[in-house]
Design a protein around this nucleic acid. Sequence first.
DNA 1: TCTGGGGTCCTAGGACCC
DNA 2: TCTGGGGTCCTAGGACCC
Length: 425
Amino acid sequence: MPRAIALVDCNNFYVSCERLFQPKLEGKPVVVLSNNDGCVVSRSQEVKDLGIKMAVPWYQLKDIAKRHGIIPRSSNYSLYADLSNRVMSLLSGYAPQQEVYSIDECFLELTGIHTVHAELAQTMRQQIKRHVGIPVCVGIGATKTLAKLANHVAKKDPRRDGVCDLNTYNPSELDALLAYFPVGEVWGVGRRSTARLQALGIDTVLDLKRASPKRIRDEFSVVLERTIAELNGIACLELDELMPAKQQIICSRSFGNLVGNLPDLEQAVIAYTTRAAEKLRNQHSIAGGIQVYIRTNPHKERDPQHQEAMLLPLHEATDDTRLLCHAALQGLRRIYRSGYAYQKAGVILTAITPRATRPRTLFDDVESQQRSHALMTTMDAINRRMGSGSLKLLGEGTQKSWAMRRENVSPRYTTEWQELAVATA
DNA sequence: TCTGGGGTCCTAGGACCC
DNA sequence: TCTGGGGTCCTAGGACCC
């Protein structure tokens, strides 16, 4: 029995979440926008049919949106995360192994499950539709890369009813299918590689499957070499079940309005560092360094441009918001230049290690470490109970001139008491 | 006027060591 | 004129993903 891996992927996930609580959006062209209502990050089928591409800036669509009545929604990540958890939890019951790959998709290990896989996949789809309300498609193949491709087929071809199992194809049927898809559809082949592959005459997925692994490795990378093996049914990528601790934690955001003065940048950097430190403590880690960066808007080519980053090593790894903020602010003050209109700032926690294995040194101030830990634990507990941001450092400020714009936001139906959806059946 | 955010992996090159 | 070689660790940057 061959290896069988399924990829389950939610259809137009964010749009589907919005529709769940606003049925009047059903059948209408809907987009979900990124922070600051900047770019399109999720499109309903109606919008895809209009030829609108992913990640297009919203302001460029104002005309076409008006003509076709496209409805914009600001992104609402707490709602999406909650619905994602429900979908993943249901799917975990279908296989001995599950890898949650992103907010809207997961891999399932179906090898050794002695039912017709396509039927099992239909059962999954129906159960998720009934119990959560989100439509999904399922692709099945001998490797992750083939499962991804199968999912793509399931989504594109309406006759397949949302499921495609490539393991049921014989070799020549499979190759015929692969010859139909352009090489850029393959997982791991991005824009750059697509152009370079085409220059070598590798246009379709089948061309890549038959390409010389050695040549591809020499001219591209080991990553693409592995992709060729995966297309040939040789699994190189295993399922990662437990989410490993993050090796870096990023918190960055574009501002709602451009920011020129240092105090506002400091507020933003404190807010981002606070968020990053919470994530760090959530995974029980400490960070050995923090990088801070700021940049002007690169799209405004005529404006004076400045972008700079600085990595601050900490002489002692920590998860203390105060110490991390202190370092981040030091860095910010050194890279900041007056006279520029900054559009974005961010912090990256690096050199992350588990808190439990923190090395002890002669100079450790154990008592102050314990005090710090107690304070942070209390702060996290209060924020969990009273709502994120209830307790924070003074420097973060309360008048956020830099905060993002969200003009079309829907309520957080499932995670905030005040915004709870009331059943009106 | 208005162009996202958060990650991973790989590679090349520099610093440093013996 | 001649200017080792091999190893490790770290960082920056590229490419990709959703």
